[in-house]
Design a protein around this nucleic acid. Structure first.
Length: 611
RNA sequence: GCCCAUAUGGCUCAGGGGUAGAGCACUUCCUUGGUAAGGAAGAGGUCGUGAGUUCAAGUCUCACUAUGGGCUCCA
């Protein structure tokens, strides 16, 4: 509906024009003919509300910390933030005081007013504020707008709500440091993040959702379920796998092994450290050296591998290859070490030692599209098995890169063709490629909405050239193959971290570290439970027997808390009839099966992990 | 790496300048129970590491280590 000519509602906080631009009421004036934006939780409304809340926060900070200077305060996906410089140290505990001051300011019922000045006037006005001058450097327009509420005014593009009375339901969520302009070498400013909604219920729902997400954080679940651990004395970013986690990982590895073999991949394995000269030849020493761990043996420099390519290349080169051998697909669960910055380490999602499900496909240039497509299908079947939503992104040539532009263009086009030819949606990450070639990244979202790169498919014309990799073509000439680097999970560490959050610890039967817990009603029936456990083990199914000297109720409770697919109670009745009493946690059912039916059911469920 | 915060028995957490507490877990004993915590007793920490202030430091200061939240998204 288009409203014309009148300022219809008390609740109008802005307008959308024909081009989809948001105009606030200050800009639109009294008689605006564009579509009004009502005060609610629509995307446009929230943008205005959050932007104004950021300004309100800035005003509060100014009152509490008079020497503060402000940089930028935009609306982002998850709320808003403001970057500023302040003399005092601001910590999480100060957020409450800032919130309180914001509420006080609202009570003063300020209107939010707008006026415009020329850029030169603005430069005079903010001559003493180097941050504002920096902001202005980034703006091309000659006319700048200033928004004013009470004594506080700020250079701002808008849009804003008409008055502070629209700002009630907000929460400051965290305080952080942020480099000015995102530049690592620049000064670090203080950043406060917040969130705001049109009504109290939405804010509450958002905060509740964040709480729920935290409950499925893989770091919390990993400790609780005894999957993995870290150790201060061993060092940061170096995960240890505990028995339960190692079982889970082993199951995932087994599924993937079969999936590779049936798709024509062959297993290989390279050494953990290789001479530095090899890394010089590959370009890693120059382009990736700052992330590599180097060591010296017998006065000879070595590098611990951060990638597995070199090993696979050496295996390929060991014997002459024919065009008939191509495409040749080598895969390895390759352990790599990378010196990630200490501040970016994050549970299993970013570590310094991890294992990639890595493969290199050596093929002829004409085979690229087909091979990439097959990898994409492989990725899709793995993601489907676990029910993951994922996005694909083509990353192009970065600043630090080897190889000629023409070669880059050709490889990049090959990736696009493979996706477009099959109507697979993708986005472009300009300059996000590896130094040796463009790539397709597969990204999965974690429990709290952060996106992580998992799988990757990278076309590489450069390494075959650098290492003089060759095959004999049909016409008996020597040609250079193309290398496709690819990983489906990315790394077992990251993938298992995300899997844990995805399932909230309740892994599907074929992955669960413990698949069944037996609870014998009393000691007398424990033998039967151990007999069943052994039978399951022979089928590759892991189980535990809870026969500790605790009450039956307590053992059932403890078993249920383990997030295992099945808890099986056995007592006199079961022993006599050779049956089991199943508590199906996932389906919230209880039922009895004969021992045979039980075995058939479970072995059948194991098959669900096949791809 | 940089900014802010945190660091107490296996886990979750309380305490707070005068030499440490709780619950769960653990050990032993009683109990042998039919579907989410039976009972009793016991063991376990010198308060992340190092240095400093102090008559006295988990408790204050500094450094280090580890962990957590951030560090593209343009007034």
């Amino acid at each position: 509906m288009i409203y014309k000519g009148t300022h219809l509602s008390e609740n109008t906080i802005g307008y959308i024009d024909d081009q989809g631009n948001i105009l606030d009421t200050q800009t639109a004036g009294e008689n605006c003919s564009a579509t009004p934006i009502e005060y609610d939780n629509s995307k446009e409304s929230l943008e205005i509300i959050r932007h104004s809340t950021a300004h309100l926060m800035a005003q509060a900070i100014t009152e509490l910390y008079p020497n503060s200077q402000f940089f930028v305060g935009p609306v982002v996906d998850e709320g808003f933030y403001y970057d500023f410089r302040v003399d005092e140290q601001i910590g999480e505990s100060d957020l409450k005081a800032i919130e309180k001051k914001m509420k006080e300011l609202i009570k003063k019922k300020y209107k939010i007013e707008k006026y415009e000045i020329s850029k030169s006037e603005a430069k005079d006005k903010f001559a003493n504020d180097d941050l504002k001058l920096k902001v202005m450097e980034r703006i091309d327009d000659d006319t700048l707008s200033i928004y004013k509420q009470g004594d506080f005014e700020d250079l701002c593009r808008g849009p804003h709500v008409p008055a502070l009375r629209f700002l009630h339901n907000f929460k400051l969520t965290r305080v952080a440091g942020a480099y000015l302009g995102g530049d690592e070498k620049a000064e670090m400013l203080t950043r406060i993040y917040g969130i705001a909604f049109a009504d109290k219920e939405s804010l509450k729902a958002y905060l509740t959702m964040m709480e729920e997400a935290k409950k499925r954080d893989h770091r919390k679940l990993g400790a609780e379920m005894e999957l993995f651990m870290f150790n201060e004395e061993a060092g940061a970013g170096l995960p240890f796998w505990m028995p339960k986690g190692a079982k889970l990982r082993y199951k995932l590895e087994s599924i993937l092994h079969k999936a590779h073999l049936t798709r024509g991949y062959e297993p290989v394995r390279g050494p953990e450290i290789l001479k530095a000269d090899l890394w010089r030849t590959s370009g890693h020493y120059a382009c990736y050296g700052e992330n590599m761990y180097l060591t010296t043996i017998d006065e000879q420099e070595y590098g611990i591998k951060p990638m597995n390519c070199l090993g696979h290349i050496q295996v390929f080169k060991q014997s002459p290859k024919s065009y008939r051998d191509l495409p040749l697909r080598y895969y390895e669960y390759g352990v790599v070490h990378r010196h990630e910055k200490s501040g970016v380490l994050h549970g299993l999602l970013r570590v310094r030692e991890f294992t990639q499900d890595d493969a290199h496909i050596f093929c002829e240039p004409e085979q690229i599209a087909q091979e990439v497509l097959e990898v994409v299908e492989f990725v899709d079947s793995v993601m489907k098995l676990f029910g993951f939503e994922y996005t694909m992104e083509i990353a192009t040539k970065p600043e630090k890169a080897i190889g000629e532009d023409a070669v880059w263009d050709m490889a990049t086009q090959g990736l696009k063709d493979a996706l477009e030819g099959n109507n697979l949606p993708y986005t472009i990450d300009e300059g996000g490629g590896a130094f040796y070639g463009p790539k397709i990244d597969i990204k999965i979202t974690d429990a709290i909405g952060r996106k992580w790169q998992c799988g990757t498919i990278q076309v590489d014309f450069n390494l075959p050239q650098r290492f003089e990799v060759e095959y004999v073509a049909e016409d008996n000439t020597r040609k250079q193959p193309v290398m496709i680097h690819r990983a489906i999970l990315g790394s077992f560490e990251r993938f298992i971290g995300i899997l844990t959050e995805h399932y909230a610890g309740e892994f599907p039967f074929f992955l669960a570290p413990t698949q069944v817990i037996f609870v014998p009603i009393s000691d007398t029936f424990a033998d039967y439970a151990y007999e069943l456990k052994k039978a399951l083990l022979l089928e590759g199914i892991d189980s535990e027997v809870y026969d500790k000297n605790d009450s039956l109720n307590k053992r059932i409770r403890n078993a249920e808390k383990q997030r295992v697919p099945y808890v099986v109670v056995v007592g006199e009745e079961e022993v006599t009839n050779r049956t089991v009493a199943i508590r199906d946690r996932r389906n919230k059912e209880q039922y009895n099966l004969t021992q045979d039916e039980f075995m058939v059911k479970l072995t059948k469920q194991l098959q669900e992990g096949k791809i």
